[in-house]
Amino acid sequence: MSSFLRPADAEEPSLTLLPDQAVYRPVSSHLAIAPPVSVVIPAMNEAENLPYVFKTLPDWIHEVILVDGNSTDDTVRVARDLWPDVTVVPQRGKGKGDALISGFAACTGEIIVMIDADGSADGGEIVSYVSALVSGADFAKGSRFANGGGTDDMTPVRKLGNRILTAVVNTKFGARYTDLCYGYNAFWRHCLDEIALDCAGFEVETLMNIRVVKAGLRVQEIPSHEYNRIHGVSNLRAVRDGLRVLRVILRERGSRHNRPARPALITGNAR
């Protein structure tokens, strides 16, 4: 989990073999990292959106894991055309949580980034997430409502529901989140052992956020801008999905998981 910083006026970093044999990848003009980064993209019938998603992914990432939810369009072919080395994982079950768990299991990188396939997230923000992790965070959590973030996609009803559910989690679990139900996050792979995901549906994002706090992992929020889905129609339903999230919150409130929490949020952001 090492990194090095360099002056802004120094020469561009190159891949360098250091005494410990770590190969450093330049990720910005100020930062190079040794840990390989895996990007997990759950997708079902997103062939039209994948060109926009892959276009924003940085070329220094270690691997892309596409979890295909039994697509009936050209999702898999398009992914392979756009990123020839992509690893395609056929989804066995159903639901976003099931897809993410399958994708995480296939990752070989030390850092895992999860991003949606609908074109709503900017892959160029990955550098901010990775910077937070190599600077000391365990979990880099995207937030549309942190200073510098934003959303073009959420309706007033969804914003209100997200605000209420975020407040409940903060109160019940001692968190300090500004956004709860957002699917753009990154973390060290070892965190998976501490949060033990066991949720198949959309509410997996809430479960992750709760268990990260319960496990005492260091969290840093990353301001992120959510754009509108480019093609297709979202499967999100405000009331139905809100109730599913609430059930997860209530279930986790009554269960024990991992060790007592350390401070849940690192102040500031990686931008």
Rank of each mutant, 00 (worst) to 15 (best):
A264C: 14
M1H: 14
V89R: 07
R247N: 13
I126A: 01
P58G: 05
A132Q: 10
P156C: 04
E63R: 09
Y129C: 04
T72N: 09
A105T: 03
R256P: 03
S128V: 00
P156I: 03
I65C: 03
D198Y: 13
I101V: 08
S71A: 11
I195G: 00
P13K: 10
E221F: 00
T56R: 05
D68K: 00
A105P: 08
D179P: 07
A215S: 09
I65Y: 04
A32R: 02
V169I: 11
D85C: 07
V113E: 01
V169R: 00
P26H: 03
L246F: 12
G183E: 03
I112V: 10
E11T: 12
F145A: 13
A186W: 01
P7Q: 10
N228S: 15
I111W: 00
P263L: 11
S143I: 04
R80Y: 07
Y129G: 02
P36C: 08
A106D: 10
S135A: 14
R80W: 06
N162I: 03
L133E: 01
C199H: 12
A261D: 02
G95D: 01
V245A: 07
I210C: 03
P260S: 07
A47Q: 09
S131T: 07
R229Y: 08
D122R: 09
S2D: 14
A146M: 15
P19L: 15
H30Q: 14
Y227N: 07
T171R: 15
K96W: 07
Y227E: 07
M208Y: 07
G136D: 05
K214T: 04
G268P: 00
E203D: 14
A43W: 02
T56G: 06
